[in-house]
Design a protein around this nucleic acid. Sequence first.
DNA 1: CCAATTGTACGATGACCTTCGTAGTTTGAC
DNA 2: GTCAAACTACGAAGGTCATCGTACAATTGG
Lengths: 115, 115
Amino acid sequence: MSTASARTLDHPERTEIRLEAVLHALSDPMRLQVVRFLAELGEGEGAACSAIELAVSKSTTTHHFRVLREAGVISQVYRGTAKMNALRRSDLDALFPGLLDSVLDADTAQRRRTG
Amino acid sequence: MSTASARTLDHPERTEIRLEAVLHALSDPMRLQVVRFLAELGEGEGAACSAIELAVSKSTTTHHFRVLREAGVISQVYRGTAKMNALRRSDLDALFPGLLDSVLDADTAQRRRTG
DNA sequence: CCAATTGTACGATGACCTTCGTAGTTTGAC
DNA sequence: GTCAAACTACGAAGGTCATCGTACAATTGG
């Protein structure tokens, strides 16, 4: 069996991803932190929610991951008790070439400037 | 006289512009429409608020222009009874190279796709 | 001065957003 | 089966947001 777990999550199709939703998802510092973390991980299956230390409660963490997933910025799959998160880089790059990279670069630049 | 009108508006300095605020400002369809309009105008003093037909009331229009100005995306100056709006392209490009262009390109791509 | 044009200020409203705590579910390990 | 780990669901509180209408202010043109 290919272990088709019953627990699956709704993701927008590539063509359903909306620019406004992506920008909104990225406009929160906490979510931008998550995206930065996942971007540094590079290609792969991603990281568990708990791998990213956010300064908020678990339920708030869940909320932010959900916003990112529903906007199409990340994908989430269950893996045992954990939930693995990965950037949907190829979808984003195909839809909006250069957008994710310039946001990440902008974030890096701002961090370097602001300290 | 260089007609230094008493009416001036607060703009964030270049170094005060925050990425999160810019992304949030751009995540609204109406404001994105304004930015697209101003970008097509190219360099110059910009356009009056009334030059951009938005499908909302005047007070809502004022609100959106204010959000864009306070985020540092546009500059506004009074010119007679009108208020001229211009993209702060050089500031944005200096702070976040490529960001504005990739957002505008993404918007164009989405419009072409969605129709 | 008078009127028209252009945009502002204010208050209100309903929607959405971030955050939390608590209680529950699913899975893996023993 | 039992227990811990990881995450979710739900409901609530407090804040912000987009929108409007109405009343007001500043400038230009007659």
